[in-house]
Amino acid sequence: MTATMRYEYLMQVRRPTLWLVYLLVFAVTAATLPFWSLDLGGRDPGDPRSAMLSAADILIAVLPMVYGCMIADRPGRDRALGVDGVLSAIPAGRTGRLLGKYLGVCAATATPFLAIFLGRAAGYAVIEGEAAALGWSLVVFLSVIAPGLAFLGALAFAGPLLVPPLLFRVLFVAYWFWGNLIPVTMMPTLSHTVLSATGEYAARGWFEGGFGPRPEAALDVLRPEATPLSAALWVGVMIALAAAMLVLVRLHAIRSES
């Protein structure tokens, strides 16, 4: 598993396309959202913790689409290249190889995301003289952003089993807007629920509060009050969904083997 993880990480992180697409989308994000001021209203941009939560809010609105799309072609790569025959004849556990691939690819694809986020934290620390921003950026990335990415990565592993990677990317972007970004009153949506991957429950439940049910919206049973417990529940849901997706991928592989 470690060898696969290391290989997959290096192969993905060295892709120029990965960095290029992230940079392009980031440029649009920085030009259209208050990424430099970190002033989203309702939070004090002078407070390093609030500033890092705002930076997370801004980046997670857009960059997960790049993340999911850039992962989509990796699960089928071994088969496309014809390497799967050799790999499958190796006694290393196939489940371990899947996990290694998943962890390596997801970590690599999240690397530009993390670099942008840490870059903003470093800039903030220098300009504002608040070194605490560096620590908060790590805390926020791990608690607010990473669980959602774990789920989205697994989704991007499972989706291309059902539809071609190109179509999956279109559907993934549509899912991202529908399930995570649109206002809850517009239509039934997973936005602002514990199934949304945007990390709101972690951000609000652990750091801010003031987030919860929207009785006027559909699916409101999925919007408990944001508390430390519901934040932990959200992390658990993301990990459980990721595990379920990976189990599906493995079952699909077993079925293909027969």
């Binding site: 192969m11 290249l81 014809g82 390497v83 799967d84 025959g85 050799v86 004849a89 190796i90 006694p91």
Partner: peptide, 15 residues
């Protein structure tokens, strides 16, 4: 598989 070497018909590599 511990004692097997396998060269498949449609061998692929990482280019």
């Amino acid at each position: 598989q511990r004692t097997l070497g396998y060269l498949p018909q449609d061998l692929g590599v990482y280019p």
